[in-house]
Design a protein around this nucleic acid. Sequence first.
DNA 1: ATAGGGTTAG
Length: 545
Amino acid sequence: MPMRNIMSHNILIGGFIQNGDLDSARILFDEMPERNLATWNAMVTGFIQFEFNEEGLSLFSQMHGMGFCSDEFTLSSVLRGCAGLKAIQLGKQIHGYVMKSGFDCNMVVGSSLAHMYMKCGNMSEGERVFQGMAVPNVVAFNTLIAGRAQNGYSEGAFDQFHLMKMAGLRPDKITFVSVISTCSELATLGQGQQVHAETIKSGSDSSMSVRSSLVSMYSKCGCLEDSVKVFTEFEDDDSVLWSSMIAAYGFHGRGQEAIKLFEQMEKKDIEPNDVTFLSLLYACSHSGLKEMGTKLFNLMVDNYNLNPRLEHYNCMVDLLGRSGCLEEAEALIRSMPIKPDAIIWKTLLSACKIHKNTEMANKIAEDVLQFDPQDAAPYVLLSNIHASAKSWGNVSAMRKAMRDKKAKKEPGISWLEVKNQVHQFRRGDKSHPKWMEIDEYLKELTSEMKKKGYVPDSGSVLHDMDVEEKEYSLAHHSEKLAIAFALLNTMPGAPIRVMKNLRVCNDCHLAIKFISEITSREIIVRDSSRFHHFKHGKCSCGDYW
DNA sequence: ATAGGGTTAG
């Protein structure tokens, strides 16, 4: 086959791939009696570009088997395929080849390599690759920032954002997206507002992805009105932007608004995706909209041909369970076509707790504990159930079981921003410099609350203690410490925003209602699953959470 | 020709 024939075929293949017609590219490729590196690269990068990662990687191994040597284009693409499949073993082998062939000095290959490790969850190796770059560019920095953010190292991601600017690089919209997500995660409103200002200065604020992340950031920082502003600020939109606004409403317990938005979305012919429905189902379950949630689930399957994931089933179990249909929820878990995980059983278990169904709780606890006997959550839930049924013998049995299995409870942490500084509190943590003051104030507050009818909910305490010890323990939950600190250190009348890593317990929820009444303050608490707006002794969740 | 990003259950 003459050379010009290969070249003309390559051009044809390139054209097919550009149009996304991989089938035609494949047919032509299979017919070619002779191929060169450009032919192989077109195929490998083409398939991986359209996220047919397995096919791309299999072409790569064929290419390798026929003695072709990869260049920077092959390598960066194949590494991207490994990242998509989380194929770290293959990624490591390619890393070895990169070192041998000297491509480790290539910035594009280096970024792909760092990205591959970060996507596969190996942060430190990703960091090492980045550190090995002589002069990292914007993309390399973005890889590191996003990698840290996605691996739950938000503070580090934010620090890197500063280092990048200090190195004289201008952040682009991809940088902003990752950095804004870290502000959502940490609920650092002040920082988020600053980054928002930077996106405006650089003209990135009209970018769809930047706006989606801003909508989410403002919602998770407790400023739903600002989410709406960002959402409506520009004409153009897409399904992710709409999904983020739907999620924002759901997170604040505004199920009706979320549904209204979805109806508008349908009118405008914006195709909802699986995340849109996840957010909708979540919104329904947190607003007690059982009928609507069920309707949407069916709509998703029948009209939009979307396959429900475990997450969708979990929302449905939550929806049914919270609204008291425990049997229906259990039946759904047992009949769904996906294997249940520990999370979905725990969702049902917490519904049993809400509706005080000890019998079902005991039965399904066995299912839950099969997954991880060291997981404290099921013991804690069961213990709470027994406590509210006043069966103290079972409560101490739970505590003993926990001790025997060495199950550890995740410590509750609450934090808040005061004057752009983040203050963190742990349950009963006396090391805080203002502990004495906080403790004293909480005592005063508690006696005020009791006069108004507050009765501490001792069912929220796990350990065997006498009444006084229980009350002391409850009074020093991290969110109460944070709120007391905020009351002492902010202007009277200013709203208080507190974040917590776990769900707010029954007792704190009750207590904060009283505190909002007594101090005439609006108290906004973000826990691990939603927002609670406390005002005049009431909570926006209507005690349904 | 090649690299990085948005929404998402508990």
